[in-house]
């Protein structure tokens, strides 16, 4: 999901702040939403840890938001204090909650968490259907002025990360229209991954991967085994013919440096 701070910026140009002690600017960050089903018990932490093992890069420095829609049991401030502490012990930083009841929001606030409004569930397609890609592409295109009105629902603040656990087959196309795309299965040749943000593939990437399609030159692609037909970041691409044999089939990250697509092995 996108977390946006309150934004006094209009048309992307900050208010003149030269002689003020502080400067307020709007900025978008991508956060990971974890949906808690029931209690934050051993089962939850077990599942979380196995996910972290499978997708270690994904959680590094990622702000976490806990979705409380299915966790009515967490009602006390102490519950949230413990949750934050237990997550910190796993080097995970919880910044807030969403979809809680009024009581849960108060308790979470007491534990120092932000209550985020208007978040929607992330789309996690199983069959790899592209989802509302076109409208979303419009929505996410550039900075927009936002009224400093926290109670107002923010449609753009919907979840961004798409996690795919099934193999992505030839002919399928998955579009993460608001952020990162994580695939925890093989991506076949003839399949296509497209993301406005980063792409992570925890399996062989044999198809195409296009990250930062909105022009984000900081987007990266991480793959377990680079066998791709095409890799592109912000429109700069290489096909499999151009790929340096030294990175082929390796654990690799791709990124842009001075508008050149670079590949580097992951340790």
């Amino acid at each position: 999901m996108q977390v946006r701070s309150l934004n006094p910026e209009v048309d992307g140009s900050p208010v003149s702040v030269a002689d003020r002690p502080l400067q307020v600017r709007g900025r978008s960050f991508t956060a990971v939403v974890l949906k808690l089903n029931g209690a934050a018990d051993a089962g939850f932490y077990g599942a979380l840890e196995s996910l972290m093992r499978q997708a270690p890069h994904f959680f590094v420095n990622a702000p976490l938001v806990i979705d409380l829609a299915e966790a009515p049991g967490l009602t006390e401030k102490a519950d949230f204090v413990k949750l934050v502490r237990d997550m910190r012990a796993r080097r995970l930083s919880v910044i807030g909650v969403q979809n809680g009841t009024a009581d849960q929001d108060i308790a979470a606030f007491g534990a120092g968490l932000v209550c985020l409004q208007g978040g929607r569930d992330a789309q996690v397609p199983r069959g790899g259907q592209p989802s509302k890609a076109e409208d979303a592409a419009e929505e996410t295109r550039g900075p927009k002025a936002r009224a400093p009105e926290p109670a107002q629902p923010e449609p753009e603040a919907a979840s961004a990360t798409i996690v795919v656990t099934e193999p992505v087959r030839s002919g399928q196309r998955i579009f993460a229209d608001r952020g990162d795309l994580i695939v925890m299965a093989p991506v076949s040749s003839g399949a296509e991954l497209i993301a406005h943000g980063n792409i992570h593939v925890y399996g062989p990437l044999r198809g195409r991967a296009l990250a930062g399609v909105n022009g984000d030159k900081t987007a990266r692609i991480f793959v377990q085994s680079l066998e791709a037909e095409l890799v592109a970041i912000a429109g700069l691409y290489q096909t499999s013919d151009d790929l340096d044999p030294s990175v082929r089939r390796g654990r690799v990250q791709a990124f842009l440096r001075d508008d050149t697509l670079c590949f580097e092995p992951l340790k």
């Binding site: 199983r126 069959g127 790899g128 259907q129 099934e166 193999p167 992505v168 087959r169 030839s170 002919g171 399928q172 076949s188 040749s189 003839g190 399949a191």
Partner: peptide, 18 residues
């Protein structure tokens, strides 16, 4: 193999079970 892969995608998405 490529065509089978394509068909597997359809079995996962374009069937009643899906």
């Amino acid at each position: 193999v490529r065509d089978s892969d394509r068909v597997l995608g359809l079995l996962a998405s374009k069937t009643r079970r899906a």
